[in-house]
Design a protein around this nucleic acid. Sequence first.
RNA 1: GGCCCCGUCGUCUAGCGGUCUAGGACACCGGCCUUUCACGCCGGUAACACGGGUUCGAGUCCCGUCGGGGUCACCA
Length: 531
Amino acid sequence: MPAETVRTRFAPSPTGYLHIGGVRTALFNWLFSRQHGGQFLLRVDDTDQQRNVEAALAPILHGFRWLGLDWDEGPEVGGAYGPYFQSQRGELYQAAVEQLLASGAAYRDFAKPEELQAEREAAEKAGRPFIYSRTWAAKTPAEASRFEAEGRQSVVRLKMPRQGELVLNDLIRGEVRFAWASEQDHVIQRADGSCLYHLASVVDDEAMRISHVIRAEEHLPNTPRQVFIAQSLGYTLPAYAHLPYVAEPGSKTKLSKRKLDKYLKNRDFAALMELGSSIARRAGFETTADTFNPVIVDFYERVGFLADALLNYLLLLGWSFDAEREEFSRDEMIEHFSLERVNKAPASFDPQKLLSFQDRAMQRLPLKQKVKKCLPFLQAAGLVSEPPPCDTGPYLSQVLTAAGDRVKVAGDVLDYAEFFMPDNAMPYDEAAFEKRLVKAPAAKALLADYVTELPSVAPFEPAALEAHLKTFIERKGVKIGDVVHAIRVAITGKAIGFGLFDALSILGRERSVQRINRALAIAQTKQPRPS
RNA sequence: GGCCCCGUCGUCUAGCGGUCUAGGACACCGGCCUUUCACGCCGGUAACACGGGUUCGAGUCCCGUCGGGGUCACCA
């Protein structure tokens, strides 16, 4: 085999969002090219010419940048084989169409839509597959002018072989066979002269010297006609590798952006969505189902996922290294990836497993970077000004250290919003306040005594605070559980949170005392309701 | 329906004829740790779709059945 350069591509159509399944396809392309020291390119499939290609492409390119999947050629970076927008490559396609027409691999077809429809229906009725009869194919220029004189319009169709078979050697699926006779004479050029995807794709892959076409399985049935085009044009075929698609959680159906409502009935998917929504709500993000949803990559960035964790999870969705290993750094992914070890069966998207990759990646993240990741969420929520005061860094570091593994995605920092609120404006979890203070006179009394002792605890740090509380409960002859919950609710407003002594220490003596006194005062005004 | 693809625990997977009374991970269940919540640790439940072959021997090879999915545009 000749040592040719490996060049792979991902060809998004500008739809305004980056689908999670698309990312996995792009990742495999990217890994394969990086591993072989080749190039990875982005080509925009905009033959359908929409109005706002640029606007619809921006979120996609943004997603690639966030993920760190850099492209060597394509939009915004250029390259020697441009332009990288199919809408700008019309002449190439036109030339290919003419060549196909000249060689007899394609023909002008003058059938009217209703005539085609009639054939289709007849075939269906007879229970046989619909293959166009070529009744309105112009065999000679004279015939073409006659059809035109009748007022017919023409498209260009592929003249597919009607016998023999195509044996395709797919890098993932092995040998796949198709009977030529069951392939339709597909249209490659519309009546208005614009060209269709299959033609454009094949022409571009050749012009851009793509060596490996790595794409999702749904393209497998398209491959024969593309091979036919390539061969008719005298191209050398790229190697094909058809990836299994990413399926819905708990199902084998292809994951699609449109079925959010259905996925929300899946417990794990709903939990992931709720995690995101709750963060978006507290951070004050504007969200719509079109842009904020776990099928779209943007979701993960906005909620505070780590790109490496997402990529690692996606890597394992359809690919494995061995029986044990699941964690891969970016360099390790590049080193170990191989198409041979890609699975053939579709893999369903598992939100919980993704979360566990994220969880572990976050645990490994150095504190400094964690701070950097979390800060924007506090700012979005209006809890920290922009630019942040200079003591924010150290303070946030303390909070994040105390929170430890509890902050799984960066947006989770909002679980500790109370540390960034003014003491007299911190809200209380009503149920917790009621249970631990209003309805717990003993705890309330202990808390009242406890707060009077706080000024003398020194240093005001976790170890000393813990030692003090220990002697406090001994003197009172109570258990730690009798007072600890009341303190927590008083200083954080919540029943749950990280270590109590860390919380006290972070807030400091003055704020702790203030918060406890405020809680005591409010509890005083509320009569315990007889239950 | 035609064509094509796929089929190991709930999920992602290891397995490329014997080392599989099927291994790992996530989830789940139980326990430990513990001021709450996480984390962590220990243990447990749980799968070769079915039927025929081939073979001394099959999760692994072949055929069939069943099941699931993809695709059948002047979309990409």
